[in-house]
């Protein structure tokens, strides 16, 4: 590192330490820019791929009301993807390149969306647990050091509460229903609980990026802290409607004031990340097909705009 860069980096860190928000045109270390592009584009991809598991149930929602709700929720996720792509583009990248990286498998997205949605109760589990975990994460990111990212998070957090509540309501309704409906809800939770916990990423000691991101206040809490907060808030919510989590070690610890939990199966997590989850191929294919099939629409609209401007 040369002298000039050292001075600039020191000034940058001082800004971060004193709580000044970084804006697109401000000087930033190349690595800060790279890390943000990686994180933000992964996040945007997750919002977009995240539409697929729920989109799967729109035509089969049990009532018109539920169908409208699910449509609105999935549309919000499209919006979230777009807010974050927009934020990422302020770092000097082009959205089409980010999308190309998603389709080629170079860019990652949240492993949770590689699990299938097998029953209607899964719409409840996804809204309650997956969006619930996202809220815990995004509430932290809303206080992060990069302006366009944290502003997008504030906007998103306002909308996530609807997602979270509608999911919980689906499960609460099933739990007041027949034995079969209750069993459907519990079976769904049994499948989603552990993958939801994995959403926070590997344990701090195995998370290569964590320390740097925390130093730059891109993240303000560690993966394990966020996971713990999610567990602590989920257990009473589950108890209130008679659901249990599939973890015999889950128990309130008087001494720490938190719930202890069992070992997470990280082997499964890494396997899904590597592309071997139940739906990885299907998800990527759905995304690249959508991109490919929409190409003529984009080209036609562009030709139309050009003609009108001629």
């Amino acid at each position: 590192m040369n002298m000039e860069n050292e001075v600039l980096e020191k000034a940058f860190q001082d800004k971060i330490d004193s709580g000044i928000i970084i804006e697109p045109k401000d000087w930033m270390p190349e690595r800060y820019r790279k890390q943000l592009i990686r994180m933000m584009s992964q996040h945007a991809h997750s919002e977009v791929v995240g539409m697929l598991p729920e989109g799967n149930w729109i035509t089969r929602a049990p009532s018109l009301k539920r169908k409208l709700i699910l449509l609105a929720k999935v549309q919000d996720e499209a919006g979230h993807g777009l807010y974050i792509y927009s934020g990422t583009e302020t770092l000097g990248v082009d959205r089409k390149d980010l999308i190309a990286d998603l389709h080629s498998g170079k860019a990652k997205y949240s492993s949770i969306f590689n699990y299938p949605t097998l029953t209607w109760a899964d719409m409840g589990s996804v809204g309650w647990l997956v969006d619930g975990a996202a809220i815990v994460n995004q509430t932290m990111l809303a206080k992060g050091s990069y302006g366009p990212y944290s502003r997008a998070m504030i906007r998103i957090c306002k909308e996530e509460n609807f997602h979270n509540k509608q999911g919980y309501e689906i499960l609460a309704t099933l739990m007041k229903g027949t034995k079969e409906q209750q069993a459907m809800a519990q079976e769904s939770i049994n499948r989603w609980w552990w993958p939801a916990l994995m959403m926070f990423g590997p344990s701090d000691k195995d998370s290569p990026n964590s320390a740097e991101l925390i130093k730059w206040k891109v993240k303000k809490q560690s993966n394990d802290e966020l996971r713990q907060r999610f567990i602590d808030r989920s257990v009473p919510q589950a108890e209130a409607i008679g659901l249990t989590f599939p973890d015999p070690k889950l128990k309130f610890n008087e001494a720490t004031g938190h719930y202890d939990h069992g070992e997470i199966n990280w082997e499964e997590f890494y396997n899904v990340i590597k592309g071997n989850g139940p739906c990885n191929k299907q998800r990527l294919k759905a995304r690249s097909d959508a991109d490919e099939n929409g190409r003529w629409v984009r080209e036609a609209a562009e030709a139309y705009a050009k003609k009108n401007n001629a």
């Binding site: 549309q75 927009s86 997008a152 609209a301």
Partner: peptide
């Protein structure tokens, strides 16, 4: 509020509405 991609101003307004003002 942020940005959108659009081929012309009309669609830019429509996309902006759908992305930044759903509520």
């Amino acid at each position: 509020a942020g940005s959108v991609h659009a081929p012309d101003k009309e669609m830019a307004l429509q996309n902006a509405r759908d992305v930044y003002s759903r509520r």
